Amino acid sequence: MKSRAYLLMTIPAIALFFIFHTYPALQGIFYSFTNWRGYGDFDYVGFKNYINVLRDDRALSAYLFTFKFAIVSTILVNVFSLTVAIGLNSKIKFRKTLRAIYFLPNILSIVIVGFIFNFIFTHFIPNFAEDLGINALTQNILGNPDLAWVGVVIVAVWQAVAFNTILYLAGLITISDDLYEAASIDGAGIWHKFWRITFPLIAPFFTINMVLAMKNFLMVFDHIVALTGGGPGQSTESISLLIYRGGFQGGEFAYQSANAVVYFIVIVAISVFQIRVLQRREVEM
């Protein structure tokens, strides 16, 4: 009876996962070897799409932007979230309330947050800076090809810090206060406690945060759509946005399917590399 109950619970889940995830993924891989435009007939072209992706300057530019954005955002979000987590884990008043407040950005819609910050960058900050006479901030950074990515980083990091902070808090809670008391008796300072006690003991949580943050930032889409739409020009066009536009709006379904396969392999390779390097560091600590 129990085995039958398990099957009744798992088979629908497996079926739904296959229908809405595995099957479309396999379909995309299949079409990546064709010249299908999303409609009509198609022919097999072998690895032609993959070769063209590697030669496509627009795709390479999108990859460079995505990597730059992901690396900078991953570093910043982990620095800020760890700092906030340490602060919230200390014995301060209203720390439970502050934890709830800091988590709020994570439950907000990315698109809505993007549109709000779009207004802030476009109107609020320039007008406020003009009233104060701060000429450096009177320009909309989202309209500057060299600075637009900075606005996207600010919004993405602000929203991502909430989730990563919760993970770091989960790690900090596992550290016994006796370790800090013993370190204080030995005369250890704040930085010595952090590097010798806190950071080594939360190393597994650091690994999780680094991998998840990098993976999520490499897949950035909503923030860019709401803030810049990939512009000015193509200066903030990410791989996800390029695949969406070319595949569903530009009649390049097969070509962008090949791009998506390459993109998937890159993300998996980076994630595996991160896990191996960071886990090796955990052992060394």
Rank of each mutant, 00 (worst) to 15 (best):
T122V: 11
S90T: 01
Y63T: 15
A136Y: 10
S32M: 08
L137K: 00
G114F: 05
V77C: 05
L88K: 00
I134T: 08
I86H: 01
Q139F: 12
Y39D: 09
V84H: 00
F124K: 09
G28V: 02
M9I: 03
D43F: 10
L7C: 05
F80I: 12
V53Y: 06
Q27C: 15
L98G: 03
L104C: 04
R99G: 06
Y44S: 10
N118E: 06
T138F: 07
I51P: 09
S90V: 00
D56G: 05
T22Y: 05
G38H: 08
P126G: 12
Y102F: 07
L8M: 09
F65Y: 14
G114A: 08
P12T: 04
V77L: 01
R95M: 00
H21K: 15
V111F: 12
G38Q: 05
T74C: 02
W36I: 02
D56Q: 03
T66D: 07
G46N: 07
V72L: 05
N78D: 13
D131M: 06
I86Q: 07
I11D: 02
V53C: 07
E130K: 10
A100W: 05
I110H: 05
I134L: 08
F115T: 13
D131V: 15
R58K: 10
T66E: 06
L60P: 12
Y39P: 07
T97H: 06
T83Y: 03
P24G: 13
F47P: 15
I86M: 05
S90F: 00
P126D: 13
G40L: 01
L8D: 06
T122P: 14
R37I: 03
D57P: 12
I125F: 06
N106M: 14
Q139N: 14
V72W: 01
Q27P: 06
F80C: 01
I14L: 01
I19C: 10
G114N: 08
D56F: 04
H21F: 14
S32K: 01
T74H: 01
F20I: 13
I110N: 04
F124L: 14
D131A: 15
I101K: 11
Y39Q: 05
H21Y: 12
F124R: 08
K68C: 11
I120K: 04
I134C: 14
Q27H: 08
I120E: 06
L76P: 04
T22I: 14
L8R: 06
I125E: 11
T66A: 11
L137W: 05
N140G: 13
N35G: 10
T138K: 10
V45F: 13
L98D: 04
S73K: 00
L104Q: 10
F67L: 13
R95D: 02
F47N: 15
R95E: 02
L132S: 14
Y63S: 15
V84C: 00
A100G: 08
F69I: 14
L142W: 10
G38A: 12
N78I: 13
I75R: 01
K93I: 07
L98S: 06
P105A: 14
T122K: 12
K48D: 12
I101R: 03
A15Q: 03
I14F: 02
H21P: 10
W36F: 01
F128K: 09
K93D: 01
F30E: 04
A15P: 14
P105E: 12
I134Q: 10
